[in-house]
Design a protein around this nucleic acid. Structure first.
Lengths: 227, 227
DNA sequence: ACCTGAACACCGTTCAAGT
DNA sequence: ACCTGAACACCGTTCAAGT
């Protein structure tokens, strides 16, 4: 039914529509069977077009995956942006953005693989992919800054703070997306509780400590040495 | 030179030596060009044996990768065990073990990909792989428990604490191993400082808070509801 | 028991030729 | 301009046949 409709439609492809149609088909196949099983010939077949026509729109398979990775970063960015905007309590933005990151991975595990699974030899060959990745990172950094401005998160060594937040959220997303952790939770803890709990622990780690007098040289331990 | 020696040696393979030789060659190829580029035919060629002989020792390509992943988990476990034993201050074991995890990823990024990159459709088909993965996880959990026994890490919701630690360390390792973060550091911060800094922030998050009176319902927020 | 060569059904990529 | 069929050099996997 659906396949027949797609095939008939194929007769009308022109002005670069085919490029888009190929991406849509590839995305479906990746969602269904993972990026490692992706075959350009199969994509062309399902799109109702000869396998050689792909090369009129993409130089090679890697560039198809690069475009899909780029779209993934844009979707992830959108999800984080929505999460940040929907949260009115500025102290909780990082929490919400972190949840959005992890939930993106849970909903689109195969897409996450394309984004981080080393399918692209060097990202520098795809400037718009790099830009999309940076945008996603910036949204996370923004969430950290929101916490800092609310006086909740330490402001020293901002790059370190951002990296800690990114690692935490990224690791959790990948562990769940790769099935290393059951997607429905561990024991009595449901997934949402795990995610919320881990993010809360993160935030405690990044938080401004109430009694600086009790802290031993905090913030200087990893600072670059100065004469 | 070396290749010639290997080829001559091939004439003598028997009693299952070939199985091992194939794994060794595959490991070299993965280290050199990544697991996605691995070809069984090329491995057989480099081992000096016909491509069909592989199937006398492995049912398919996936099982080769499963065995390599298993070896990876064993090496990772060994690295964490060494780190734990070398640290005499029990309060710092988690820190050392975390560093070992990340450094393993930095040293063997392609091996880490085989372990976590979804090359094996379902791990359950390889019981010894599952067991090796559990062993690695247990070593991390052990490091958490060491911190708890030293009175440094919260003891409520142990599964949540372990997961937070695992996510943190795993995310950082993958970000560096996949080149998302430059392996030599960000700006003025060298890699060792980044890793140490992130792990310190983690430990602050997991730490026992000094004034329970200031904590609002800590430890109950994510506990399962009881009637 | 262990290894081999030939064969099958796939790939990604290229290119001359068609509309 | 855009698409196609045939061709090339690879795969993973199987199997009858060799020692």
């Amino acid at each position: 039914l659906k396949i027949k409709a797609e095939t008939e439609f194929a007769r009308a492809y022109h002005h670069g529509d085919l490029k888009n149609a190929l991406i849509v088909t590839a995305l479906k196949q990746i969602a269904a069977r993972g990026p490692r099983a992706l075959s350009l010939r199969e994509v062309a077949r399902a799109t109702g077009v000869s396998h050689a026509s792909t090369y009129r729109h993409f130089p090679n398979k890697e560039s198809v995956l690069a475009m899909i990775a780029e779209q993934g970063f844009r979707k992830l960015s959108q999800a984080m942006r929505d999460a940040a905007e929907r949260e009115r309590d500025v102290r909780k933005i990082l929490h919400r953005v972190g949840v959005a990151y992890v939930e993106f991975g849970v909903s689109h595990p195969h897409h996450l693989q394309v984004m981080f699974g080393d399918f692209i030899a060097s990202q520098e060959a795809y400037p718009s992919l790099v830009e999309a990745g940076k945008e996603a990172y910036e949204l996370l950094a923004y969430a950290v800054r929101a916490g800092q401005q609310a006086g909740r998160i330490q402001s020293e060594e901002p790059q370190l703070i951002e990296l800690a937040a990114w690692s935490q959220v990224h690791g959790l997303a990948l562990l769940i997306a790769s099935g290393q952790i059951p997607a429905d939770g561990i024991g009595p803890l449901k997934r949402a509780e795990l995610v919320s709990g881990v993010l809360t622990l993160l935030q405690e780690g990044l938080s401004v400590k109430p009694k600086p007098s009790e802290q031993r040289r905090r913030g200087t331990r990893f600072a670059p040495k100065k004469p």
